[in-house]
Design a protein around this nucleic acid. Sequence first.
DNA 1: TAAATAGTGTCTCTAAGACACTATCAT
DNA 2: ATGATAGTGTCTTAGAGACACTATTTA
Lengths: 235, 235
Amino acid sequence: MTGSSGYPPFAVTVDLVILSVGEEGLEALVIERGEEPFRGELALPGGFVLEDETLDAAASRELAEETGLRERHLEQLASYGEPDRDPRMRVVTVAYLAMTPDPPALTAGTDAAAASWVPVRSLARKHLAFDHRKILRDGVDRARAKLEYTTLATAFCPREFTIAELRQVYEAIWGEELDPRNFSRKVLSTEGFVVPTDATITRGGGRPARLYRAGPASELSPPLRRPRSFARQRP
Amino acid sequence: MTGSSGYPPFAVTVDLVILSVGEEGLEALVIERGEEPFRGELALPGGFVLEDETLDAAASRELAEETGLRERHLEQLASYGEPDRDPRMRVVTVAYLAMTPDPPALTAGTDAAAASWVPVRSLARKHLAFDHRKILRDGVDRARAKLEYTTLATAFCPREFTIAELRQVYEAIWGEELDPRNFSRKVLSTEGFVVPTDATITRGGGRPARLYRAGPASELSPPLRRPRSFARQRP
DNA sequence: TAAATAGTGTCTCTAAGACACTATCAT
DNA sequence: ATGATAGTGTCTTAGAGACACTATTTA
């Protein structure tokens, strides 16, 4: 125990890594900060946890406030608490990871003067406020890993989607091309991954594709393994 | 922003799920609390994060303080911040997961009047202070999952170990028997999982077993899959 | 010797990867 | 018709599971 009140006081915030798959591949929602510190720089959306609020509730509230998104998937990512990560005071932030179908229109909130979707590829080279670059990278890594052994990819798809669209989610996040035929076979043979509807849709010429919805399964067993791009030794 | 100082003050603690594999299978280190609240109840070891301390450093310090353990593996697990999880004040705890070879002797610290290793099986039915039951369960779930796709199991083994000992780690944590011969083949054929030494050891009759050390690999690819105990339909 | 544990070889089966082939649309 | 996209079938191969068999110790 230290100090008069028995413990050092902290501020606790939540920060959100919100991902979507758009024209430019995997994109993240970032805001341009309207206040010091880091005014004018890009940052992840987030804010203080309120007095009587659960961490999950704070994340959910920030997600709604800053984007007005209908919530598809929101999970805790990790916590970050370097003593100097915020120049104003000692702050521990609990990062959350959210996914949403094709980048929706944004209802910018008070803090988020300029929220926008930015391709993750281009963010990788840019500077972000605080330690948000690392948080973003951790979020993307988590998403990449979870595609392998969960049905998470459906969270990036609208309510009804084709197998090709689901595959494009994998391809955008993994940055690898997948064989459409083998992918289709794998998805359809994994019970509960997707459930077929009666509808089909034509996206622009070619045989119409059947539409599916997300199924009840949450884990993929056996997993859908990401292609390991090794230079295989050929003796 | 709320309040005069602009944000609600929190206490931040770290709590540790410290696992080991002993006589009774998977065991966790718990302390009997010497103070209110929950005096006399079992709890996970932990404590406040200090003014100028990283979260990782706080976890590392608590691990050393409460157990004197040499650190084999320590990773952040998740954060817990229900408003009422501590009756004294608003506390967010960042839980960490640690593994150590066979339950070592304990150097009880100030707070840890009675630290002891308790089989996880028996803890599953007991009450723990705060929300530590959930934290423990999350830690065990994480460990179970990570055995599949990482070399984490070696963190439960002493510096030199036999394949049979490594297998017993898997069996204790998964609660499933594995075929010794297939397990051996899998481990030895996964490059970098273990590296052989020249030494062998006889554990009590039978052919001597070769001793290995943990190898440089950290991920298992392809994974060592946990047997799914499904009641397979036999038509 | 028997019993115990370590370790190898081999067969089978599942599932992934490669890719030919068929199906159904727009033009 | 042609080209594009959707979807099926088939061959090959990697790797998991089952388990016979060999190796080396203690009792």
